[in-house]
Amino acid sequence: MTIQNTRREILKGGLAVAGLSVLGIPDWAMPVLAQGETLVEFTDLPPNINLNPTVDRRIIDIRNINGVFTPKDQFFTTQHYGHPEIDPAAYRLRIAGLVDRPLSLSLTELKAMRSTDIVFGFECSGNRRPLQGLTSNGRWTGVPLKTVLDRAGIKAEAREFVFFGADHGEEEVDFRGTITKVDQQFGRSLPRDRALSSEPLLAYALNGEPLTKHQGFPLRLIMPGWYGVANVKFLSEIHVQEDQYLGKFQARWYRTLRGEMVNGEMKWKEAAISHLQLKSFIARVTRAGDAHNVFGVILHDGTPIRSIEVKIDNGPWQAATLDPSTKEKYSWKLFNYTWKGATPGEHTLVSRVTDVTGRVQPTSEELANKKTFLEDNSQHPRTVKIA
């Protein structure tokens, strides 16, 4: 039977959802509920959730989202090569390759440049049901990437901009059966038009405070509207080149295999992970009196949202309401739906989002020809049991 608790009862009785008390989650991490409001637990979750599976990996409990911005010590993170130790006094960002003036910039020099802020909510491309916890939203402060690139002077033949982190590790490169072991930095690239646009940011602060090591201290690339992998942490070098960059995390590890019907035949295509696929999910259900509130999150690539809807069981789609506090272009969007007349028993709730181009969040069945687990933006049915 589902337990419905007030926030006070959860804290007092040690009934933190999914064993959160065992994990040491503090008071402020619990959802802030209004007077008389109770939390309705999902019945589709595992009995225990480990929010910190390793020292360099962290997921958020989406049921505890309390506002627009994710606190720095809750912000999701995942790493491939751990956290490098970087001395901020000795740190330099190098810009080299097809540039007129190679640069080596200290953190102090970067902070002396004109700064700007951007609110950006994103997810790891591997974020998926049932937890949906590899996502967060924050206000990033830094210097526009274009400002630094303009200072370096980009040559006309430059086509690819490669961003290397200070994190690195041993990799085995397989070329037709021949294995070569190499020490490789984490790297991702952008094409010229994206790199020289006005939106990419070299961020040194999150929510008004210096980046933590979990968020790429001392400098991180922020690529608004793209999946987390493109937002390179511990940024140490920008290399400008003409040839396409084919590093592991650009060309092999982060790919989506999808079948598409072309001229009546199934064609299998591999595509690199880049911009966010339109997605929504229900994060929390609460009860106040005779009504229930369904609260959720929308992730998107910056394209304006036309509508967000919720469906209960086999009923019709009903319009939900966007939270006006999440109106920034690249912010995650929060939404609420008032569910009236809920009857005792188990119910299934699902959300779907549509943007202004007419793109609709797909069902799992509509993604049947996607054979890799990355970029799962399918509609996510949630189950609850009303007492």
Score class of each variant (00 low, 15 high):
Ser115Lys: 10
Thr116Ala: 15
Thr116Ser: 15
Asp117Tyr: 07
Ile118Asn: 02
Cys124Val: 03
Ser125His: 08
Arg129Ala: 14
Leu131Thr: 10
Gln132Leu: 09
Gly133Tyr: 03
Ser136Met: 09
Ser136Asp: 08
Asn137Arg: 06
Arg139Ser: 09
Thr141Met: 05
Lys146Met: 07
Lys146Leu: 15
Val148Gln: 09
Val148Ser: 05
Leu149Val: 06
Asp150Asn: 14
Asp150Thr: 05
Ala152Trp: 02
Gly153Gln: 04
Gly153Thr: 05
Gly153Leu: 08
Lys155Thr: 09
Glu157His: 06
Gly165Phe: 12
Gly165Ile: 09
Asp167Arg: 06
His168Val: 05
Gly169Pro: 02
Glu171Asn: 11
Phe175Cys: 13
Thr180Ala: 13
Val182Met: 08
Gln185Val: 04
Gln185Met: 08
Gly187Phe: 14
Arg188Glu: 10
Ser189Arg: 06
Arg192His: 13
Asp193Val: 13
Asp193Arg: 15
Asp193His: 15
Ala195Cys: 11
Ala195Lys: 01
Ser198Leu: 15
Glu199Phe: 08
Pro200Gln: 03
Tyr204Glu: 00
Leu206Cys: 01
Leu206Arg: 07
Asn207Gln: 08
Glu209Gln: 14
Glu209Met: 15
Thr212Glu: 10
Lys213Tyr: 13
Gln215Lys: 00
Phe217Met: 04
Phe217Ile: 00
Arg220Trp: 00
Met223Thr: 06
Met223Ser: 14
Pro224Ile: 13
Gly225Ile: 14
Trp226His: 15
Trp226Leu: 02
Tyr227Ser: 01
Tyr227Lys: 05
Gly228Thr: 06
